[in-house]
Design a protein around this nucleic acid. Structure first.
Lengths: 371, 371
DNA sequence: CTGTTAGCGCCTTCAC
DNA sequence: GTGAAGGCGCTAACAG
């Protein structure tokens, strides 16, 4: 084999070949400073014939910028993050930035590790979806060391960085209310969540929920609780499933709901993977939606329209979240300093076929029962 | 603000604080060479108190390795690549490699650009899913420059690199055959594909299809054609839709099929996003599966079980594809030179509810009609 | 417009 | 086991 040694052509090589100094070659190649048309042509010709490829790592050493954005997501298999990711690349790739990707799988330890990796790689900025139990301390340390961070999906109290997400409490409040207005009195939620957060999500007061550090699950649960309260409905902790983020977890939770003496007549799932699990759980127990149980999911996944029944969802502007996060970050990198902002985007309740009147002993009932 | 200047602590700083030489500090910090327990403790203490973070870019300059893998996928929103990506990270993150991600959206131009970016960033290796019309030349050049490449999903003729994928021709042949054995005579395929590849996919001979440079769509189409031929069924180019990879494209193609005087009684979609589009298209025209049309998709997506009807699919071992690709790459990086290999993994036809007997004027028919 | 020179932060001989 | 010095490829001053 010939090229095995991975010997790279350097600016010096190109300079020699072109018969100019390294500085001139570098200027032509790096497209900065001023070079005469003749020199530039000679350099470009030499570069082409030698197969020169600029060495970004050497360049980064000097400029102090890697032109790299670190993206740390909770779960790459979640539709939400894929869309966000695409939104991010729309913006970053245009402006010459590349992405280093890390997955946390909702593990705090991996989140810390990812943060250290990004620091070590000297990324210019970080877009992060913090885990529910995020280490505020570490994130703040990174931010204070001068690396801009934009939080997506979740916001962290006590950390002064930009964030982009949705109005979680309002969206969940409205969805719950929609079910209540149909006559539902037994409404359950599947929050996702981990072993650490489960007891809090299930038992804390609404006030506490609203004060949690990572706020998505907390505020969504708070919105649900508040809607219940406003309607004078009793809150039941056994109607809150917080046993994991995976599809299988939601499936198990759904099956468990139907093992209750009085199963819920409606379920809200806090993300699209969880919705899928609920759908599977319903099949497992032979329950039909919307006849036996109404279902509202989060995120308008590409499959939401074609499942059985077509899923009513709280649609999030996922692409836009990515776009705004990247824009915020790049603007800050461009030196446009300003106060930190928290963008809360609007959601839309997309009504399809999975919501109906509550059943009562197998017979649909509610405000319009008997019509 | 205090830490705004992004001043990083260097080994030199740590050395001074610890009262040792830079070399000793570097050895302790980089965990190489030999350092006395006492020095090591002092250095570690100093590093912690100063908040030292190793500079990977400087380290890369010296070692010649960035500990980075470039991953270039055709479409991050495709379930296939997400699973593959997860398989990749399983392996790479364990071994201390991070991922730089690039999307091509099936654009040849973006593929070239991504390849250049990866080269410029001096990634240690590349995992690439080439576009259908891949630039063999450029890929070969990168490979020959000494950067190991592993191809996933698609294989390229004339490029001597490792690849991991499935037995495309066999899988499609079998699926087509399954439909034929049920009595289907009008079987259509939705291939994805772009404007460039469409005429070839539709009109080329089987022999030509099998000789295309990028081979997934070509060999799948070939498998389909061969099954048709073996059964003595006529091939119709209007039953081959190659009008794009997006969900909407498949939807439109499906609607177009049903505008034909004699619509197909069965459809095979070449990836999961396309399957979703077919499902939507069927809703658009008011056709039901499997009564009006049988449907087989590629990839066992998480939603396949809960759509209406539950989707029969050709399941690919996606996670395993990622795992094997990463393993092949890392092994090669570890210097274990060997001949290039092409791993063809097995697929499984997962039968659910979307395949049935062919309809005939609205009445299901076929070998078992009337039972 | 062009060339020379001095590092960026780290690893790696090479002496000691 | 430790320290001093050189250099990876490039850019940024500074002269000319």
């Amino acid at each position: 084999m010939s090229g095995e040694g991975r010997v790279h052509v350097t600016v010096g090589d190109v300079a020699r070949e072109a018969g100019v100094s390294v500085a001139t070659a570098a200027r032509a190649l790096g497209d900065y400073g001023s070079v005469s048309a003749k020199s530039r042509a000679r350099v470009e010709q030499a570069a082409a014939s030698l197969g020169y490829s600029p060495n970004m790592v050497a360049r980064s050493m000097i400029t102090g910028s890697t032109k790299t954005i670190g993206v740390i997501v909770a779960d790459i298999e979640n539709q939400f993050f894929q869309r966000v990711l695409r939104g991010i690349t729309h913006i970053t790739s245009e402006r010459g930035y590349d992405l280093v990707l890390a997955n946390t799988d909702e593990s705090l330890d991996r989140e810390r590790r990812a943060l250290r990796v990004m620091t070590s790689r000297r990324v210019d900025g970080i877009i992060l979806s913090p885990t529910e139990v995020a280490d505020t301390q570490e994130i703040r340390a990174v931010a204070e060391s001068g690396v801009p961070i934009v939080l997506i999906d979740r916001r962290l109290r006590g950390v002064n960085v930009d964030s982009v997400g949705i109005r979680n409490r309002g969206a969940t409040y409205d969805a719950t209310n929609r079910l209540i207005s149909l006559g539902h009195k037994h409404i359950a939620v599947i929050t996702g969540g981990t072993a650490e957060s489960a007891p809090v999500l299930k038992n804390a007061t609404v006030a506490t929920l609203r004060r949690l550090s990572a706020t998505t699950l907390g505020t969504r649960t708070a919105g649900y609780r508040e809607a219940l309260e406003a309607a004078g409905l009793a809150y039941r902790s056994d109607f809150v499933a917080a046993n994991g983020f995976r599809q299988e977890d939601a499936r198990a939770a759904t099956v468990a709901f139907f093992a209750l003496p009085d199963p819920p007549t409606a379920i809200i799932a806090f993300d699209s993977l969880l919705s899928l699990g609920v759908l599977q759980g319903l099949r497992d127990v032979g329950a039909r939606s919307p006849d036996d149980v109404s279902l509202i999911g989060f995120d308008d996944a590409p499959w939401a329209e074609v499942v059985d029944p077509p899923l009513t969802v709280i649609g999030q502007p996922t692409l836009e979240i990515g776009v705004q996060a990247a824009t915020l970050l790049l603007d800050r990198l461009a030196g446009r300093g300003r106060a930190h902002v928290h963008h809360r985007l609007e959601t839309t309740l997309i009504e399809r076929g999975s919501v109906g009147l509550p059943r009562l002993n197998g017979v649909p009932t509610g405000p319009r029962a008997g019509l």
